[in-house]
Nucleic acid binder design. Structure first.
Length: 732
DNA sequence: TACAAGCGCCTTTTT
DNA sequence: GGCGCTTGTA
């Protein structure tokens, strides 16, 4: 099936013992795993439930499962253990919850839950949050956990560390009383069990899987690797596939040394290198190699392609981010007009903050698009609140959820009362729900507070009985009514409340969709299963297969491919990105990671790659003047075409200096027509009487034009009336 | 206690 | 530029 030469295919299909596949970009990495699993099932009669295949995203797992279904049939593939580390561990943890002191209904705290918890603890412990801000504290906690270091293992190195260690210990304790885990815990709990020679669960897990496969192995972290090694046990039937050049999650604890040092850990490992790229034109492959060749540390390998050279890689200089957006959108419009499918096109950027300007231009041009990541649907306050109700009913011990909704919609339980509850819970080391129950029984509460708290207590208790007899969807719908959530929003009747109601409706829709999907797969639908899935969705997982231009960070682009790629913001400081902690001591490692990130970006393109860089950029409310990225200079001149002008001209441009750029040097303003010479000629501004097109209002007749730095057009739209809209949001 | 306004804060990448 | 938090007021 995949493009393997005969000895490689032989090894992938039949190898026993450790197998390491270095799979270069576009060489069919994921297919190697699929091929091996298919062979284990068909040729070696391995029972599907004895195979564990770990992917990087849920989306990848879904695609692999679909492909295997075609090869082996759904009744076989449904028994496979196939998913991300987190999803697989979450499932195992449901099974072995007892041994780690969780209930079967434990909840998974997301980032904001975790951060809220840490903030609360910092306040309670009287720690100075200037010296140890919640963000930093949390990231240090995660770091410790990824190294499997518990609070007791953490020795304070300097005075401040003492409060950190104390905080870390309290954090762990709070998770336990809340019947909750964070993302690291999912892996860590299971890893500890799997390594424990005395644990029955560990013994069970170690003998459970006869074959373990890991995709995107370069991005596993220390505890994930330890877990894999424990699970593989004595069989050593471990197959890992990855590409050290595409390791881009170091900041999340991923350790490239796992793949680079694999042969030290498994001296008998068979090693295969897949070096032929089947995805991109040779110009694109050469461009990518130009970038990665300068990495300081990498496994030697020779990526090559037999595809034709294709178009040159275009490198476009523009003045600022608005011009960049204008250029990208015009170019995309041009492509679509010539028959390109929008979903074959992607726009990449280094940080989410770059997406807004691009988004506005796309919307203005009426080009369908989807943004992967960014402000996530599940991050909306109202969505979180509804889910918090569901989680709280499922697990009343979950403090984060209780505190989120105790006064949503407002029911007269203010900060003072809440603080009373939290203190009572902390004093007795119990969860807030139990503290609430206790205080109501004790009868020591002020009457007003008592009445309101009692009503809340009854509300949740009632919801619990409803949950038992309803599907997740019906239960969610019931919550909206019973809590008065819907009514409150309807009464508010503002643009925001309408949007909230819409989001809630969308959430209900997605729950219904989920139920349908499960039923079709022949599985029963439970509240826990739904909540678990919601906790583990990644951004890419939500990407639709719709005819829309995709916009995403380069990180989110990993594992994807597009016919045309626009790589924007290729400037020093933006890419390689220089954040606040640029003084860190492993700056070289970080630069290498940026380089690999650029390599990943470039290798996503199949046929067309356009790279843009701006002379100045306003981001986070500050305008910066930027130089072209060093990665652009690493592109082989033979495969690139430099276009446009900016403050920073390339050698190429300097030798082709024109009168126009000389004029700009002297500070004269002009319109650089040459910069858009391959685009449809820019048209003059519309005049009164002309018609313009708006994505929402449709066609309108121009009444007045307001010129300026950002021209606006006043026009009458049938059915909408007279509207003033910035010209860049209109087509004409 | 509710709510609005305003302030200061930060600002990478994510399971 | 936006968010969360605090503050001030009804």
């Amino acid at each position: 099936m995949p493009e393997l030469n005969p000895p490689q295919a032989q090894a992938v299909a039949h190898n026993q013992g450790p197998l390491l596949v270095f799979a270069g970009a576009g060489s069919g990495k994921t297919r190697v795993i699929t091929y091996r699993v298919a062979n284990l099932l068909a040729e070696h009669s391995v029972a599907p439930y004895r195979i564990l295949a770990v992917t990087f995203t849920n989306k990848a797992a879904g695609e692999m499962r679909a492909r295997l279904e075609q090869l082996a049939g759904p009744e076989i593939t449904s028994d496979l253990w196939l998913g991300t580390f987190h999803a697989v561990c979450a499932r195992l943890l449901r099974r072995y919850h007892d041994e780690v002191g969780l209930s079967r209904r434990y909840v998974i705290y997301d980032d904001s839950d975790q951060k809220a918890l840490v903030s609360r603890l910092i306040k309670r412990l009287g720690i100075n949050d200037k010296e140890l801000p919640p963000r930093l504290a949390l990231s240090r906690i995660h770091k410790q956990k990824r190294l499997a270091l518990s609070p007791e293992d953490t020795t304070p190195e300097w005075p401040l560390d003492e409060s950190f260690v104390e905080l870390y210990a309290k954090y762990e304790q709070s998770l336990r009383t809340a019947d909750a885990v964070d993302f690291e815990d999912l892996i860590l709990h299971i890893m500890r069990l799997a390594e424990d020679p005395l644990s029955p669960a560990g013994r069970d897990m170690r003998s459970r899987f006869s074959h373990v496969l890991v995709d995107e192995f370069q991005d596993t972290n220390a505890i994930q690797y330890r877990l894999v090694r424990a699970l593989v046990g004595e069989t050593k039937n471990l197959c890992v596939v990855g590409d050290d050049d595409q390791s881009i999650y170091r900041w999340r604890g991923a350790d490239v040394r796992n793949i680079r040092g694999f042969r030290d850990d498994f001296p008998t490992a068979t090693i295969i290198k897949l070096e032929q790229n089947y995805r991109s034109t040779s110009n694109i492959v050469k461009a990518a190699l130009g970038i990665i060749a300068k990495a300081m540390w990498r496994e030697p390998k020779q990526l090559f392609t037999e595809e034709g050279s294709g178009e040159p890689v275009r490198v476009r200089a523009v003045g600022d981010e608005r011009q960049e957006a204008f250029f990208v959108v015009e170019s995309i419009r041009h492509q679509i007009a010539n028959g390109a499918d929008p979903d074959d096109i992607a726009i990449f950027y280094r940080v989410h903050a770059q997406s807004r300007v691009l988004e506005e231009s796309l919307r203005g041009a009426g080009i369908p698009y989807q943004i992967v990541g960014g402000m996530k649907f599940f991050d909306r306050a109202e969505v979180k609140s509804l889910l918090a109700y569901m989680r709280l009913v499922n697990t009343t011990r979950s403090d984060a959820d209780l505190l989120r909704i105790i006064n949503v919609p407002t029911r007269g339980i203010g900060n003072k009362t809440v603080q009373l509850l939290v203190d009572a819970a902390a004093k007795r080391e119990i969860c807030v729900w139990d503290a609430l129950t206790l205080l109501l029984d004790a009868g020591t509460l002020p009457t007003a507070a008592r009445r309101k708290l009692k009503a809340f207590h009854e509300l949740i208790t009632d919801l619990r009985t409803v949950a038992e007899s309803h599907s997740p969807h019906d239960f969610a719908a019931h919550i909206l009514e019973a809590t008065g959530f819907r009514q409150t929003l309807e009464k508010e009747d503002s643009v925001e409340s309408d949007a909230r109601l819409e989001n809630l409706a969308e959430l209900l829709g997605s729950i219904a969709e989920y139920e349908l999907e499960r039923e079709e797969a022949g599985e029963n639908v439970t509240l826990e299963a739904y909540l678990e899935r919601v906790s583990l969705v990644a951004d890419v997982d939500t990407m639709e297969d719709a005819p829309k231009v995709a916009m995403m960070t380069v990180h989110a682009a990993k594992g994807l491919e597009f016919v045309s790629v626009y790589l924007t913001g290729m400037e020093e400081e933006m890419f390689p990105y220089r954040g606040m902690n640029s003084e860190s001591d492993d700056a070289l490692e970080e630069l290498d990671e940026e380089r690999r990130l650029a390599y990943v970006a470039v290798t996503r393109a199949k046929q067309r790659l356009v790279i843009t860089h701006a002379g100045s950029r306003t981001i986070f409310g500050r305008t910066k003047f930027l130089n072209r990225s060093r990665f652009i200079d690493d592109l082989p001149p033979a495969v690139t075409r430099l276009e446009g002008t900016s403050q920073q001209r390339t050698q190429y441009q300097r030798t082709h200096e024109t009168g126009v750029s000389a004029a700009r040097e002297r500070g004269e303003s002009y319109v650089d027509r040459n910069a858009f010479d391959d685009l449809p000629e820019e048209e003059a501004a519309p005049r009164p009487g002309d018609t313009v097109q708006h994505s929402k209002f449709g066609e309108g007749v121009v009444e007045r034009v307001e010129l300026g730095t950002d021209p606006a057009i006043v026009a009458r739209y049938p059915g909408w009336g007279v509207k003033k809209v910035l010209a860049r949001f209109l087509s004409y």
